[in-house]
Design a protein around this nucleic acid. Structure first.
Lengths: 223, 223
DNA sequence: GTCCGCAGTTTGGTATACCAAACGCGTTGC
DNA sequence: GCAACGCGTTTGGTATACCAAACTGCGGAC
């Protein structure tokens, strides 16, 4: 079917395209928690067969965006306060550790790159450009983790970052966020792992509190 | 084909069977680093179609046992000293954090279960029963992580534990291991997260050193 | 003798077809 | 009227078929 309707795609591209689209729709809210994913339906919609759709769904399961509600029923995951708590705990474990490694391993080039990102974040914050702020902040975290120079750590944090973007769309006290990022950077640049870990910890905890407030309101904080 | 030769299997069982078998063969050494995994070959060997084999291979990739050496060439991963270092760093991040949570959250039932496991480990160590020691130690770590009461943490540690079993077959100073486990347990039971974290950290580091010695010899420790 | 190129083979990616279990809904019996 | 049974539909699991890219090896040209 597709051979007549679409140009030939690079190898493995169909699965990636379906995966990226679905993930994007979940993160942006087009697909909402509880919405069902039906293989045949999606295959028809994307104009592909069920096989790549299937693999994309598996990947989404692995990333934690969807799950098998019953043996044959795949739905977008519902976010309970406990889910958020667990996610932030995992994030805390990984990012705090990464910050400690980063302090020990960062090269001058690494630090220069982060400094540039901080400048861009500052400009975007001043301008109130939410899109850019989100993007730059995401890159910032990526760079800090990359400084830890451990590919497994990077892999482990990928799905965490994805789910984080999912639940923390537009909230954030941006100026406060910028201050924390700068402090974290300075701690890492100082080469003191303990200081870096402390700042990373504080940052994640602050971010957790604000996320919980945004998602569930003040009352729910007593998880 | 299979409908005439084999009984009907429970849903999703084929993929799981193939996955479990391949993982076991990698861990036990039947499949060695650099060995190739060929879909058609495995499908024929297991008497199943390529689809479940395919999904099993994807899972093995996600777990880190195999990787795409080139776009069409899937091989059992080779273990470099850096791989081991990265794995133990990830383990350190997760297990140390889990130990801290466990100290804060463990229930008396949890502690009783761990105590029982420790007794069994002690008996097995005295008897020199390697099989049982390995099994009990594995359960011990599982129980400790379970005490942290965070399903994401458990999920994240699953592939780590698998790769760990892969690289740490039969070595270990068992009596020393037992002492460390008992100390970690006592730290957790004391309810002091910092103490628990310190013991977990020491335990992982010791285990790392002995693993590196086993795999690469004394000389390679200067990674 | 070496290197480049072409054709056959290998192999993972994708599409299609069939199967069996689970779900829904209507019917029927109490 | 309500509950339980049963049949049809839905849907994910598995098998098979076809495709295109990459690898291999042989042969010819320089």
């Amino acid at each position: 079917m597709s051979s007549t309707t679409t140009k030939i795609e690079p190898i493995g591209a169909v699965r990636e395209r379906v995966l990226a689209t679905l993930r994007q729709e979940i993160i942006s809210g087009g697909l909402r928690p509880g919405d069902r994913l039906v293989e045949r339906e999606l295959a028809e919609r994307f104009g592909v067969s069920r096989v790549p759709v299937r693999e994309a769904i598996r990947a989404l399961v692995a990333e934690g965006f969807v799950h098998f509600e019953t043996p044959r029923r795949i739905v977008v995951r519902r976010l309970t306060p406990n889910d958020v708590k667990e996610l932030f705990e995992l994030r805390e474990a990984l990012e705090v550790y990464a910050a400690g490694l980063a302090a020990a391993r960062a090269t001058p080039q690494d630090l220069a790159e982060v400094e540039e990102l901080l400048d861009r974040a500052a400009a975007a914050t001043e301008a109130g450009d939410a899109e850019t702020i989100t993007d730059v902040n995401s890159r910032l975290h990526d760079r800090i983790v990359a400084m830890a120079d451990n590919s497994l750590l990077i892999e482990a944090l990928e799905p965490v970052a994805g789910r984080l973007r999912w639940m923390t769309r537009r909230n954030e006290e941006w100026p406060q966020l910028l201050v924390e990022h700068r402090e974290l950077y300075e701690a890492i640049a100082s080469g003191d792992p303990d200081r870096a870990r402390a700042h990373a910890l504080a940052h994640v905890r602050t971010n957790y509190d604000s996320t919980v407030r945004q998602l569930f309101g003040e009352a729910a904080e007593l998880t």
